[in-house]
Design a protein around this nucleic acid. Structure first.
Lengths: 230, 230
DNA sequence: ACCTGAACACCGTTCAAGT
DNA sequence: ACCTGAACACCGTTCAAGT
């Protein structure tokens, strides 16, 4: 069985006098937030904790394990509301928006989604809550899993490219005209596409992305709700 | 303007007597297919072309540019059908399935989706065709973009985790009971979740994923179709 | 115009050795 | 039990030098 994960190993003993795993993970998240996925190296992280570069290997088997740990921290920030209070659709909608916001807040997590197993307690908690929401809606059996996968896929699939966009645009003064020119150049060989692409989009891309996310979310929820009728 | 891409630079001069960019990209795709994203290094690729490791920099400015080039090759494998022949829904459905299959065939491309700009001719062609399908359905203006984004997000968000699953499972003999035990262990603290998760899933995960993808796809298309009514 | 090798500034990880 | 430094086997990229 080659499938491994930090979460499938024996739980850690309570931390002794030395550094703690929590401390290391917290520092890793901080470094990731500041410098991104490529900015995290064991040497840099060690330096931040004023430790030798290789001391961390006492607490963590591998860099990937450390990333799994950091990744689960992100899931811990996602907000769940009780479907009994607001209804299943609003609960799912709020969760979807929260997932998007949290990922945008930790852009490095976008590179980890789907690459790393999400088996940490926080990830499981969110998955459990989403499942309950679909159950409250009336879904049953494996359709609960299908519906959860569908919604999660939509949110992640929509948010991951947003990160790349933010990264590319973040470090430059944004100019709508220049951007339009770039797009026109890139799509020069697709006249039909240019004619149908709405270039007003580049006036306020932030707002348009929000609109787009809502449009898709409503569509996905509508489509799922329709499964209940039949 | 810090946003850069191979596709936004001046087109290349026709290849002279030396190696060609096409040759290099083809070799890169081959290496990626065989050894994955981490398996591609400029040194290894150079060796494959019996060239010095750094010779490639004559044809390609950077490794990321090479990846952009290879990524667009993948888009070139996606199959589009004419909406006039089969109707917009079937055309979109076929395209979605094709996108999934192609990505699963080139697992490394999953790590690139959303991280790299998809501005190559093949990617643009697919985007253009998808847009036409939505146009044929009756969508207009920026809603065409929203609908395209929604469907693409779904397909990518669903397929990316499949790759990780395949990678984890591919190298081990698959045992349904063992897998169930692993899941039970991981979710030990979530009794409600365990009770709602359908553990029969692990009898034939391949078939279940297919089912799940279809379920979500139908839902997304239903939800989008509903936007036309209002 | 095309290709080379040496060199630079990095990586993750192992391991014997220290306290 | 915890931490260290040296060492290994890699990276991407630059650049002066060759043909």
């Amino acid at each position: 069985m080659s499938f491994t994960s930090v979460w499938l190993r024996e739980p850690r003993k309570p931390s002794g006098p030395g550094r703690s795993r929590e401390e290391i993970v917290a520092a890793a998240v901080e470094l990731l937030d500041q410098e991104g996925l490529d900015g995290l190296s064991m040497r840099k992280l060690g330096a931040r904790l004023s430790a030798g570069a290789t001391s961390l290997y006492w607490y963590v088997a591998t860099k990937d394990e450390l990333l799994e740990l950091a990744y689960d921290q992100v899931w811990g920030e996602m907000a769940v509301v009780d479907p009994d209070e607001v209804g299943w659709r609003d609960a799912l909608s709020a969760l979807a928006h929260s997932m998007r916001q949290v990922i945008l807040r930790h852009p490095w997590s976008g590179d980890l989604i789907g690459r790393l197993p999400a088996l940490g307690p926080n990830a499981l908690h969110v998955a459990d809550r989403m499942r309950r929401m679909f159950k409250a809606a009336g879904f049953e059996g494996s359709v609960i899993d299908f519906a959860s996968s569908t919604l999660t896929a939509y949110v992640f699939g929509m948010t991951i490219p947003e990160i790349a966009w933010n990264a590319a645009m973040g470090q430059t003064r944004y100019d709508a005209d220049e951007m339009r020119a770039t797009v026109r150049k890139a799509a020069a060989d697709f006249p039909e596409m240019l004619e149908s692409v709405d270039l007003d989009v580049y006036e306020d891309p932030q707002a348009v992305r929000e609109l787009c996310f809502d449009f898709g979310l409503v569509s996905v929820l509508d489509g799922l709700e329709r499964r209940l009728a039949t």
